[in-house]
Write a protein that binds this DNA or RNA. Structure first.
Lengths: 196, 196
DNA sequence: CAGCTGACAGATATTGAAATCTGTCAGCTG
DNA sequence: CAGCTGACAGATTTCAATATCTGTCAGCTG
């Protein structure tokens, strides 16, 4: 609650870590830097996070959860058709990732590094997103709008088919001219493939 | 090694380069190595290729063209339906890339490096592949099997949607258990999206 | 005593000097 | 004379010495 809390908490460490990552980038950010920002010794940071990898994963998880939370609202918009929700959800995912990549490149690089290291935070993030997409597709099947023998498998296929527009490995292409049109074309193809 | 007292040709240099790339990998392969395999001075290699980058691009182009040639046969199989040809073509593309990645990892790494450097050889390769796919889809539209206002745009969308199964950036996932099933699911989704 | 410090060992990263490589070209060779 | 050689300059890579970092822990502090 206090604007300048004196006790060292996991939350304060995560905020300082984001700051350091933004300033120095993932390759140069050290635990000593984080401790310096907080005005404590680096030993204290290790009281809250067992390793540097755990700290990086925690800060990344926090960052990924922001996207998951943004998208979760679209899943349950009962007044819209499942097709519209699939479109909106994928468009929102693309927009969120693109915005993050452009606006927060240092942290985005960290996320990409962790994704490559197959960290648990990323694995969970992907499972969360797939779960959301599965719910929309299942609703579409129940409404008779979509055909999908196994909604989870189909959701995975939709996710893979649009990977180019949310996988961080393709981030450099997201701002290229024509990217938006290509997204629309893939989205159209995928939605047509879902329809009964 | 076998005595090679013949005249020095671009073709012989490309073969020696492949040999050196396979043995040392893309990071350690030098023009001096190539010259040593051929029993000439490295200055002679520069008579045929202006730069090392040009040499690497030429050897990569040769290698990429083998895939393009393999697939071109499927495009014109008039006795099969367009849908079958799209399925066969994408499956053959996936199989070819996967086979290369598993069987020739050093050269595959070189290809991946060049793809990242956005070399012209890769650009041309992608244009060739897209051209083949466009022809199949256009044939499908003309036969009334597919709906696609602009076959070239749709071909691009199909190519993007299946990127995970032919883009070298994903090579590490191609041998994972379940990869084949995921390919089938994406292929099913895409083909459904093409149908009228 | 709960939380923090700071020195320490082993691991990792940085640095700069030495080695190697790329690309050129004047001259050699057949 | 067409094609090749080998020495060379500048760029890049390697390597080992040095510095910094990670993770631990005995002891300090409030």
């Amino acid at each position: 609650m206090a604007p300048t809390p004196q006790t060292l908490t996991a939350e304060r460490i995560l905020e300082a870590t984001e700051e350091v990552l933004r300033r120095h980038g993932p390759a140069k950010a050290t635990v000593v830097d984080v401790a310096r920002v907080l005005g404590v010794s680096h030993g204290s940071v290790y009281r809250h996070f067992r390793t540097k990898a755990a700290l990086r994963e925690a800060v990344t998880k926090r960052w990924l959860d922001r996207t998951t939370d943004t998208l979760s609202g679209i899943v349950t918009e009962g007044d819209r058709t499942p097709e519209t929700r699939v479109r909106d959800w994928l468009a929102a995912l693309y927009a969120a990732k693109r915005h993050k990549a452009a606006g927060d490149p240092e942290l985005f690089a960290t996320y990409s590094v962790l994704a490559g290291e197959s960290g648990d935070a990323v694995h969970t993030h992907l499972a969360d997103l797939l779960g959301q997409l599965t719910r929309i597709i299942r609703a579409g099947v129940e409404a008779g709008d979509f055909t999908a023998p196994d909604p989870a498998t189909t959701a995975r296929a939709v996710f893979q088919a649009t990977a180019r527009f949310h996988d961080p490995g393709y981030a450099r292409d997201w701002e290229l001219p024509g990217a938006e049109e290509e997204f629309e074309a893939v989205l159209e193809l995928v939605v047509r493939g879902l329809r009964s």
